[in-house]
Amino acid sequence: MTRPRMLSNSAILAGVLTTAGASILLAGVLATTPTDGLPSPAEQDAASQARSLTNPDTNFESPTWKSSQQSDRDQACMNSLNLRASLRAYEGAPPTIPHDIESFTRTKSCLDCHGDGFVMGTRVAHPMPHPYLAACEQCHVTQEPPLSRADPGMQFAETSFEGLFRTGPATRAWDEAPPTIPHGRLMRTNCLACHGTHGYEGLQTTHPERANCIQCHVGTPE
């Protein structure tokens, strides 16, 4: 199983954009513009045609609870999980910010979009998965530093760090049983951040009217 490469900023942003557009959601991350090391559009088309949940090229294994009607959703889920992983050093790390932040004058302006979540056109700002903490930039750093065009910056050797990729997958006791929670819940207590209206395609809950997620969904047994 290969790990996702670090995507360029434009690829990540494109991925964010597509998550909001239902018509192109199946293409997900794969529909981004070609960048260094990524396949060409033609290759991507072929890849997305050929890609199935059991394709060894995919980064995520087939969820064990998959049923045939859910393959579209599974594909979107995989794309979203790959996008998510590309924003992090390892599962559990605070995600990096795929946009400029220094043009926002105050740290609290993060909340304007990421408080309840926000959609404008094709752009989605996910709500915070954790309770409000006063200093967003304490943990979240940007991928778009302000001076990147003025100076190439310090050049260091590559890293051989390979972060924990993902926990899971979720399991179901039987076909219709509620899936287990396949990931940690530290700093991820607001389930709707990823699984709600402004969450990720393929990860959104089918029953957002139910208020208490952990009534039915429990941790994945070891």
Binding site: G184, R185, T189, L192, N212, C213, T220
Partner: peptide, 20 residues
């Protein structure tokens, strides 16, 4: 109900990333 989905103080964090 006075709570956001799962975002309550008494939520157990027994599930953590990287059990393996």
């Amino acid at each position: 109900a006075g709570m956001a989905s799962g975002n309550t103080a008494d939520v157990s964090l027994n599930v953590l990333d990287g059990d393996e």
